[in-house]
Each structure stands twice: as structure tokens, then as C-alpha cells.
Design a protein around this nucleic acid. Structure first.
Length: 810
RNA sequence: GCGGGUGUGGCGAAAUCGGCAGACGCGACGGAUUUAGGAUCCGUUGGGAAACCGUGCAGGUUCAAGUCCUGUCACCCGCACCA
């Protein structure tokens, strides 16, 4: 088959018939929204990863379509972002120009793939008609207190010259470029994702997502149940600490503040001032490597002040130490060196007292002892253990009016400011008189100017664009400046799946009815690397928009599937520097898009991925040839009179229906490699039947047609062509996906493994109508069994219907 | 350190509720066809001469374990001073 011409032929026909367009008016069929993560328009062409994501997922979408769903499968581009800007800095090509060029190339390649993308719904996040609404989203969050600006210690990537969200720092280095991140205190915009921490956590339970991904989000949100306690200072200030171990509170021998804690300087005495300021400076400049080193020596400094432990009135010293994080809990902890490893190390180093207040049950207590144990030296609480102990102490603290139970989350608010050019500008004006003023919605979009100097120097490129910066305050009309930062590109991708539902709308980001009808996404397919970024942000957006009344569902993605990663042939991640990049184009040119897609589906376990290896691609190509020859040969047969329907025909029909039933399950489960194995088995069964001298032509033909239908989602152009050759006028995709007939799935007899004392002695075909007792009786007559059993008695017989019989003798 | 995952032929991989390990392919070997090569078609193919042995390793539960339990090793991923 000349795949090049048939690919073109069917792509053109599908387009002409608007086959790929989601039918918004259709109320008969159930909608089904299949979404693949949209792509970043990089300079390189479509790589194997894109193909692996989109090809098999498209087969799934086509499968759902043939099952009778009104399938919506859109595609678009996550077009803002750093790579285009970095490319511009290197080459001088403007990000807008290179991005548009790349999108054009990729669109063409994506079309050539032959996927049923509904291009009429396409979105490009860098275009005004999209980022206008991204800015609108910001304004809604701002109006409702979910976006705020504050000075905070933030992660700064010196190579990308911008701040990063917590989620974009991996092990202390920039997720994108691998550069060590440094801390800076900057005034930045945040989204209050923490307001949804609890719902983001509990909502996971209802989602059909990989457990691993759900667990990663749970970990990331990091719920912790503990207790807040107030320690009064002699200065009159109060230090709030957070602890999960209030059962150890009688063992507090000092209190530690993070160096950035607001009370740090205030509580410092004159004698200690110099040492403290030095330490604060040291902590601010300690490199991240140092901070991250697991067994880094603890450092700290005494403030000179003391505070009072509310439960026993003990006077304890207040220290500063950078092992306490400013951004978690209250930025202060009560130190119990006897029962916490970090406090133990610190106390040992600075010769602070260590007081044991928990004892290990029945064994000697070795300090630091951090497990649950029996409270001792704790007056009225002595003898209490674990959870019970903590709740008693927490109650007591509440009664004292010094705090009480408290839930904390590890999740931080989402920092969305970026000091870069190629992104959506903040719709905010800073007025010397009125402060931060949101741009009125009617003035959106705040256009991103083209003529900008984007050489990075740590300041936002837009800040140097006077025309952009200079504006008037919408409130007082006075001179004012725009915010020079741009929004994190993850903001753009947090709502694109909603825009697809109504992408041409120029009055609103989307119409509520359209979105409520199409969403949530039924199946979302994309990489696992987004577990704690995009997938979390998108959930947050959905919940926030729901609460603001813009939509009516709780979760954006009902089902999530991660495709695996295709590595280079050497087992490493594909990259130019490894020199192991495999280009799909070469294979597509040589074998065709269907064969390439089919190979991706067959050669790997979809969710696992693995090293690239093209050994099997010829085999797939050969398989398609076999199918073609076989089907065409059968289509030429003339039906004889009185076609036979005996054992052979029954076997063939059984092969057909068991293939249908198993493939349907496999496709639904994204178990594409096994689905294709079933196609091959069915093909083998047809070949075998076809070799018989006398055959039932109508049956054979109908089985062959079913094979074409079953295979169609996985090899769409190829099957359309075959379908046409078989004499059909309509698309094969207008056909119903075959449904297994349960009657044809029952066999008269099945092969059993016959075991004596759990060892297989023979196999036997046994009628499926026999009862366990009848099977046992029959099996006992088999010569192999008689020989093994001899005169020993059968003490037990296990029958597993349809599978095996096990006689226990002796 | 914490959380999660993976480990099966020469290779990619399969294996419903615990029920014949290795489906389907690749490769290899043998044969047919062919002047030859290629292509195609048909067989064989976990190891072992065999009894038997085989799912990282060592135990356990069970009539029966790749699957369940305990311990252990290796690799991968995520988090990592979160009090």
C-alpha cells in the first residue's frame, strides 16, 4: 500500500467531511472529552515523545468515537515561555516570530500524524485573544482575595534571571536549567493556592488518577496535624511555635526562630546584637548547596532573650538558627533535644540542656528518642502515650489560652511573577497615590509590546519599555506605571482545557453552559513530570473558578493517564548533548504514520516507556502487509451455496469474539501492546481458517471486516483504505466498534491442566457443562492419572472450572 | 532519612480472584521457494541428555505463589532540616 498517498487522501477526506470536528449541537451521543497535554512550540520538530503521547491517545479517542461517543479532542500550544526568549537572546530572532514559525511547522506535522484533532478549537496562549483572558483570570482571583502581592524570600534563578515557584525548584536547582537557586527577598505576586489545600487533598480520593501521582500531590500538600503554642517573652512579645509533638513540651530547653523571623532583631539584646546581625547575614548568603546538605552542621546564635514555657513556667533561651524554616508553620519551633534529632544535634553543639520526657516502652531509652512513648517528668500527664498524650496536652494548652490544635500544610502559595518578557503581562498598575490598581476589564488585554530589549540583567525587560510602563491610574487619573513582570506560563496552562470548550468567544473566556456541558475532561493524557505543577495548578483554578461562579464542577480531569518516557537507544533521556535523539520523521517517511504509531503502541508498555529500539518496526510494517493481502484476498471470494458452520467455523467465531472482548478492555485500559497482540492472534486465526479447502465465505468476510474495524483506531489511514477496498462508501469510523456476542464466547470444551499432587501429568479437553464431581470422576479415568495415583487414596480434589484439576493423593 | 515504584528468556514484553509462567512479536536455528541476495511462506526456539530446574535473593502461608506475608539486595522516581 502506498501509505504516503493514502495518508493524504484520508486526511483530506476527513477534513472535508469535518470528521474531526466536535459536534456541539449533537444531544444524542454522549460527549467524551479526550485531552492530551498541549505542546510547547520548540524549534525542533515533533519528537518521539510527542508522537508517543499523541498517537496512542488519538487511537483511544477514535476508539471512543467508534463506541458511539461524541468525541472532543482539541490541540493547541503552550506558546509563552523561556526557551523562545533564550533563543532570541542567542540569535536575535524575536520570540513572537520564532514561536509563530514553530507553531506553523508543528501544526503541519501534527496534521500529518492523522490524529482527529479538532483544529477549530485550537488555542495559542501567546495570542491576544487568549492572554487577554489569562489576565482576566488574574483579575478575578485578585478581586476575590486569591491573588496578593507581598515581600517574601523567594527562589531566584541567576541563569534564567527570574524568580521561580516552589514547584519549579528541584533539589535546590532550577527545574529548567539546572542552575543553583538563590534566595532573595522580593515583592512578588502570589496566588493563594493554600486556601484550597484541604480540598486539593481530599479531592484526590475521587479521581481516577495513577496512585503515584495522587501520592505525590498528597506529599506536596503535606498536611500535618499538630499544635500551636505561645511562649511569652520577657520583652512582652509572644512567640508562636508549631509542633506535632506537644507531648514533648515539658522537655523544651530552648526556642528557635528562623533568621528571617520578624521578632528576630527585636528580641536581640545589645550584647548579642553584633553576633546576631552577623548570623542573619550569614544565613541569607549561605549557598543552597550548603543548606541542602543532609548532614550539614547546625548553626545558630543566642539572641540574649528568654521566654516562658506555658506548661511549666520554665524560662528558656531564644536562639536563631537556619534549620528552622521561615516559610513553614510559624517560623519558630520549641526545641526538645531529647526527642528530636535536629534539636539534639544543635543542643549538643551549643551545650544546651537535654531533658528526657518520653520513655520507650519496656526498653532503655536512647536519646534522641523520636518515636511515641510514655510521658515522664510531665506532672499530670505522666504515663500517657502517643495520640492520647498529645490530645490531652493540646486541650490543656487551649485551656491555658496559649494556643491549641492546628493543622499545617507544606504547600506554599504559588508565586506567579516572572522577570521575563515572553509571557502575559500583569494587568496591574502601580499608582503612587492609589497603590496597586487592577486594570479595568474593559481595558484588557494589556498588550505585550513587540519592540523590547530582552537582554537579561535581572530586571524585567518590560521595565525598560517606557511606552509600556508609562500609563495613567484608572482610579485617580494620575501618572502611574504598569507592573513590569509577566505571569508564570503555568498560569496560561491552568485554564486552557476550559478555553477549548469555547475558544472563539470574544466576550468572555468561555461560556458557562459550554464548559459545563463539555467538562470535566474524561481522559487526560500527558507526562508524569507535571504531577505537582500543572496538574495541581489546574485543579486549583477549577476550584477557584467554581467558587467564583464561573463553572459547576470540582475537578478538571476525571481520569489521568501518564504515558511513559521513550529513552534514547542507550537508555538515557534523549537529548542533543547525549547525541541519542531519534527522529520520528525518518521512520514516518519510511514506514508511514500508521506503522510508526502502531509500533509505538506495540513495542512498549504505554505507561512504562523504555529505551528506543527499532527492531520491531519492520515487523509491524510486515504485519500490515499481511493484513492487507489477507483482507483483499477474502474480499474477492465468491460466496458458495450453503456455507458450512461446523467446528472450524465455531473456532473462528470464537477467535473473533474473544478478540473483540479483550481488545475492548485493553483499549480502555491503555494496554495497547496487548490489544495489538490480540489483532495478530485474530489475523493468525483468519489465516489458518483461510487455508482450509472448504470455507464459509460470508463468515470469513465478516470476521475480516471486524478485524479492519477493530484495527481502525490504531491504524486509521490504512483501515480506511482497506474499508474502501472492501467496497464500502462511508468512513470506517462511522461504523460501530464491534461488540462481542457472549453466546459465541462459550466453548463446548476447554483444555484443563490435570495435576496430581500439584504436578502436571497431562492436559485434557473437558466439556464445559460438567460439574466439579463429574470432572473429578472423568479425570480419574485418564491413563496418566491412573498411573500416578496407583493404589494411593485421593484425599482431596481441587477443580478450577475452565482451568485445572488437582488431585491430592497419598 | 521519608514516600512510591520496578526487578520475568538473547531482546521488547504478557500473565482476570492466587490456578498450565513466558501470550504477541523481535532475534536465532531448520526447511520451502529463488541463479544469488532480498522478500515471502512453513516449522522449532526458557534452561537441562534426563529426572527435573526456572519470575532479583532468603524464608513463610497454601492443594497451588511472578501474584499474598516477613526479611533482604539492586535500580528508578518523588520529597527532603516541614518541627
Amino acid at each position: 500500500m502506498d501509505f504516503k498517498s493514502i495518508e493524504k487522501k484520508w486526511q483530506t477526506r476527513w477534513e472535508k467531511a469535518k470528521f474531526n470536528h466536535f459536534d456541539r449541537k449533537d444531544d444524542e451521543r454522549k460527549k467524551f472529552y479526550v485531552l492530551e497535554m498541549f505542546s510547547y512550540p520548540s524549534g525542533a520538530k515533533l519528537h518521539v515523545g510527542h508522537w508517543y503521547n499523541y498517537g496512542p491517545a488519538d487511537s483511544y479517542a477514535r476508539f471512543k468515537r467508534m463506541q458511539g461517543y461524541n468525541v472532543f479532542q482539541p490541540m493547541g500550544f503552550d506558546a509563552f515561555g523561556l526557551p523562545a526568549e533564550n533563543y532570541a537572546i542567542k540569535t536575535g530572532v524575536h520570540p513572537k516570530d520564532s514561536t509563530e514559525q514553530n507553531i506553523a511547522t508543528m501544526e503541519q506535522q501534527l496534521r500529518a500524524m492523522g490524529a482527529m484533532f479538532d483544529w477549530s478549537a485550537e488555542v495559542k496562549t501567546c495570542e491576544e485573544d487568549y492572554y487577554c483572558w489569562t489576565q482576566w483570570m488574574f483579575l478575578q482571583l485578585y478581586k476575590n482575595g486569591l491573588a496578593y502581592r507581598k515581600e517574601a524570600p523567594v527562589n531566584w534563578c541567576p541563569s534564567c534571571n527570574t524568580v521561580l515557584a516552589n514547584e519549579q525548584v528541584e533539589g535546590g536547582v532550577c527545574e529548567r536549567c539546572g542552575t543553583q537557586v538563590v534566595r532573595k527577598n522580593l515583592t512578588q505576586w502570589f496566588f493563594k493556592i493554600t486556601a484550597y489545600a484541604e480540598e486539593l487533598l481530599t479531592g484526590l480520593d475521587s479521581l481516577d488518577w495513577p496512585d503515584k501521582t495522587k501520592n505525590m500531590q498528597r506529599n506536596w500538600i503535606g498536611k500535618s496535624v499538630g499544635c500551636e503554642v505561645e511562649f511569652d517573652c520577657e520583652s512582652g512579645d509572644t512567640i508562636k511555635v508549631y509542633t506535632t509533638r506537644c507531648d514533648t513540651i515539658f522537655g523544651v530547653t530552648y526556642v528557635v526562630l528562623a533568621p528571617e523571623h520578624p521578632l528576630a532583631k527585636k528580641l536581640t539584646t545589645d550584647e548579642q546584637r553584633e553576633a546576631v546581625e552577623q548570623y542573619i547575614d550569614y544565613a541569607a548568603h549561605a549557598s543552597e548547596i550548603e543548606r541542602l546538605s543532609a548532614n550539614r552542621e547546625k548553626t545558630g546564635v543566642f539572641t540574649g532573650s528568654y521566654c516562658i514555657n506555658p506548661v511549666n513556667g520554665n524560662r528558656v533561651p531564644i536562639y536563631l538558627a537556619d534549620y528552622v524554616l521561615a516559610t513553614y508553620g510559624t517560623g519558630a519551633v520549641m526545641a526538645v533535644p531529647a526527642h528530636d534529632e535536629r534539636d539534639f544535634a544543635f543542643a549538643t553543639k551549643y551545650h544546651l540542656p537535654i531533658v528526657k520526657v518520653i520513655e520507650k516502652k519496656g526498653e532503655e531509652t536512647v536519646l534522641p528518642y523520636t518515636e511515641d512513648g510514655i510521658m515522664v517528668g510531665s506532672v499530670q500527664f505522666d504515663g500517657l502515650v502517643g495520640e492520647e498524650a498529645r490530645s490531652a496536652v493540646a486541650k490543656y494548652i487551649t485551656k491555658l489560652g496559649k494556643g491549641g490544635s492546628k493543622v499545617n500544610y507544606r504547600l506554599r502559595d504559588w508565586l506567579v511573577s516572572r522577570q521575563r518578557y515572553w509571557g502575559a503581562p500583569f494587568p496591574v498598575i502601580h499608582c503612587p497615590a492609589c497603590g496597586d490598581v487592577p486594570v479595568p476589564e474593559k481595558d484588557l488585554p494589556v498588550r505585550l509590546p513587540y519592540d523590547v530589549e530582552f537582554r537579561p540583567d535581572g530586571k524585567s525587560p518590560l521595565a525598560k519599555h517606557e511606552k509600556f510602563m508609562h500609563t495613567t491610574c484608572p482610579v485617580c487619573g494620575g501618572e502611574a506605571e504598569r507592573d513590569p513582570d509577566t505571569l508564570d506560563t503555568f498560569v496560561c496552562s491552568s485554564w486552557y482545557y476550559l478555553r477549548y470548550a469555547d475558544s472563539q468567544n470574544d466576550k468572555a473566556p468561555f461560556d458557562r453552559a459550554a464548559v459545563d456541558k463539555l467538562l470535566p475532561v474524561d481522559t487526560y493524557v500527558g507526562g508524569a513530570e507535571h504531577a505537582c505543577m500543572h496538574l495541581l495548578y489546574a485543579r486549583f483554578f477549577t476550584k477557584a473558578l467554581r467558587d467564583l461562579g464561573y463553572l459547576d464542577f470540582d475537578e478538571p480531569f476525571k481520569r489521568l493517564v501518564h504515558q511513559g518516557v521513550i529513552l534514547g537507544p542507550d537508555g538515557n533521556r534523549m537529548s542533543k548533548s547525549h547525541g541519542n535523539v531519534v527522529s520520528p520523521d525518518d521512520y514516518v517517511n519510511e514506514y508511514g504514520s500508521d506503522a510508526f504509531r502502531l509500533y509505538l503502541m506495540f513495542g512498549f508498555s504505554y505507561t512504562e516507556g523504555g529505551p528506543w529500539n527499532d527492531d520491531g518496526i519492520k515487523a509491524i510494517s510486515r504485519y500490515l502487509d499481511r493484513v492487507e493481502k489477507l483482507v483483499l484476498k477474502i474480499s474477492d471470494y465468491k460466496a458458495g451455496k450453503n456455507p458450512p458452520y461446523g467446528a472450524e467455523e465455531k473456532t473462528l467465531d470464537y477467535a473473533r469474539h474473544s478478540t473483540i472482548s479483550r481488545v475492548t478492555k485493553d483499549m480502555e485500559a491503555f494496554s495497547f501492546n496487548t490489544a495489538i497482540a490480540r489483532f495478530m492472534e485474530l489475523t493468525n486465526a483468519i489465516t489458518k481458517y483461510d487455508a482450509l479447502p472448504v470455507k464459509n465465505v460470508p463468515l470469513l468476510r465478516s470476521v475480516a471486516e471486524d478485524l479492519v474495524k477493530l484495527l481502525a483506531p490504531c491504524a486509521p489511514h490504512f483501515c480506511e483504505e482497506l474499508w474502501e477496498e472492501l467496497g464500502h462508501k462511508d468512513f470506517v469510523f462511522e461504523e460501530d466498534y464491534p461488540v462481542a456476542d457472549p453466546e459465541k464466547l462459550t466453548l463446548d470444551e476447554k483444555e484443563y491442566a490435570v495435576q496430581v499432587n500439584s504436578k502436571i501429568v497431562c492436559r485434557a479437553n473437558i466439556s464445559t457443562s460438567l460439574s466439579d464431581e463429574e470432572i473429578e470422576a472423568y479425570v480419574k479415568t485418564l491413563p496418566e492419572v491412573v498411573e500416578r495415583v496407583g493404589d494411593k487414596t485421593v484425599r482431596k480434589c481441587v477443580v478450577v472450572q475452565g482451568r485445572l484439576v488437582n488431585l491430592i493423593v497419598g
